[in-house]
Simulated scan of single mutants.
Amino acid sequence: MGKQSIYWTSYLHKKTNWEIYLAATDFGLCYVSLPNEPFEAFTSWINRRFKNYKLIKTEEKFATNIKEVNNYLNGERLHFSWQLDLNGTAFQQSVWNALLNIPYGQTVSYSEIAIQIGNSKAVRAVGTAIGANPLPIIVPCHRVVGKDGSLTGYRGGLNVKKALLAIEGVM
């Protein structure tokens, strides 16, 4: 059996000076880095998820993705139109699918996500699944806040979470 192709590129958003890595399989977008996350974090994630792969750098494959991310970061886009290839456990996927249902410009709490997926006692597990989200910004984990509305942990740092919520008019 041949190696699976993982296509990737990087993008620099000039206004924020954020560098973002994007990766896709033949089935869809599988990874978007947090702003200014090192390339090693990207390759480490790929190595954990895909055992037999080859990385192929290509900007052409991501032209639409880059345009949409750019428009989102400029406050000009509310939704993304891409096919996603979410790679995670069944529990993680249920959490990530719940995140996809949070409307632009709104926030929900971790406990609301736990209730939505049918496991109200799994608030900490929901937080762990959110922290493992391979498609931040696209699968909007930045829209999840504490029960009292406070900003809580974010793998990319609270300054990035605040900036993303500000783009959506929440902050």
Rank of each mutant, 00 (worst) to 15 (best):
V108K: 11
K67Q: 13
P103T: 08
Q116S: 10
N17Q: 15
I66W: 09
L100P: 06
A63G: 10
K121D: 15
Q83A: 08
L151F: 11
G131D: 02
A98S: 11
R77P: 07
G105P: 01
V144Q: 01
K161L: 05
S94P: 01
G146F: 11
A163V: 12
D148N: 09
V145P: 02
P38F: 09
S10G: 10
N101L: 09
L99F: 04
I115A: 11
L55P: 02
I66N: 10
Y21H: 06
V145Q: 00
I167P: 08
W45A: 02
A122L: 03
A122Q: 04
T43C: 12
A24S: 03
F91I: 01
A163M: 13
P35V: 10
P134C: 05
N17Y: 10
P38K: 13
V144T: 03
A166S: 14
G131P: 00
T152G: 04
L12T: 10
G149W: 05
V126P: 00
A23E: 09
C141V: 07
C30D: 05
V145G: 01
Q92G: 07
E60Y: 10
D148V: 06
I102G: 00
G157M: 04
T9I: 07
R124K: 13
G105M: 03
V126D: 00
I117N: 01
K14Y: 07
L99E: 04
K67A: 13
V160G: 02
L151S: 02
I130N: 04
K162Y: 13
V160K: 01
K15I: 14
K161T: 03
I115K: 11
T89R: 04
I137H: 07
Q106C: 10
K161E: 06
T25F: 03
L34V: 09
Q4T: 14
K161Q: 14
Y53G: 00
E19T: 15
P140R: 06
K57P: 05
S81D: 15
L165G: 12
S150W: 02
A122K: 02
S150F: 04
A166T: 14
L86Q: 11
